[in-house]
């Protein structure tokens, strides 16, 4: 989808977890639509630099900032950088996510807290700290959740809890900030071909494809396009919603 680029002139987006997978595709799509992008990454600085290099000829600025969303001082540093260096923030895409899949009985405290922190707490914290900037710009927020947060999934009690939390958070925040003409929505991907699926056994992937109406996995671009749609004015009457993009799996 190519949207009216004038609409986005000089607008700035923050995308968490932009170094690879879905986030990387979002960064590229926003850049192509003339939106300045600040993206974060955790460890993958080579991928982050490669992305900046790849987009260097775009007519917008692209900046990658390292930030471990499990580390409070790094998050605070990110917030300070954004507030003072890029205060005209329009869009926030809380995309970074992680999973540690195990049967519930084997989940250690750290496994629980890490997954809740990166997926849910960091989403809420970043949004809270940057919200007023977005309200002033009458921007928009998209949070990346998962079908696992809607249906549940074996071995994903921590991940499902975090992703379900994001859906509730999104619904409530949308109600609070609607008066500012700011929209907050979720995208819930099904099974998308990224490194996150590396841990899923190939027999399970086969079964998932069979159970999916479209008989295939999704690709990153399909999620990125949905995120762009929800950020854009094309979705101007959609807020508090979770858009499921799963090829008809659930």
């Amino acid at each position: 989808m190519k949207v009216n680029t004038d609409e986005y002139q000089k607008k700035t987006a923050l995308v968490t977890g932009g170094s690879k997978g879905i986030g990387r595709e979002v960064v590229k799509l926003l850049a192509k639509n003339n939106i300045n992008v600040i993206f974060t990454y955790n460890k993958n600085y080579k991928a982050a630099y490669a992305l900046m290099e790849e987009l260097k000829d775009c007519n917008v600025f692209i900046t990658g900032i390292p930030c471990d969303l499990n580390n409070q001082s790094e998050i605070d540093h990110l917030v300070t950088t954004i507030l003072y260096t890029y205060p005209n923030l329009h869009f926030l895409v809380n995309n970074a996510g992680t999973n540690i899949d195990k049967p519930f009985s084997q989940i250690k405290d750290d496994d629980w807290h890490n997954v809740i922190q990166v997926n849910l707490n960091a989403t809420a914290y970043l949004t809270q700290k940057l919200l007023r900037r977005i309200l002033i710009q009458q921007g928009s927020v998209v949070n990346v959740t998962s079908i696992s947060g809607i249906t549940g999934a074996i071995g994903q009690t921590n991940y499902s809890a975090a992703k379900a939390g994001i859906i509730g958070f999104t619904r409530s925040l949308a109600k609070e900030v609607g008066t500012f003409n700011v929209r907050v929505n979720c995208v819930a991907p099904g099974y998308i071909e990224t490194e996150m699926l590396d841990s899923v056994p190939s027999t399970n992937i086969k079964r998932i494809k069979k159970q999916t109406a479209l008989k295939r996995l999704g690709n990153k671009k399909e999620i990125a396009e949905t995120i762009l749609f929800l950020l854009s004015d094309k979705a101007s009457y959609i807020t508090g919603q979770t858009l499921i993009v799963d090829g008809g799996l659930i």
Binding site: R132, L135, I136, E176, T179, F180
Partner: peptide, 13 residues
């Protein structure tokens, strides 16, 4: 507090 936030936003804008 939400109204105060709205006031702050409007004043900034």
């Amino acid at each position: 507090s939400l109204m105060a936030l709205e006031l702050a936003v409007r004043i900034e804008r």
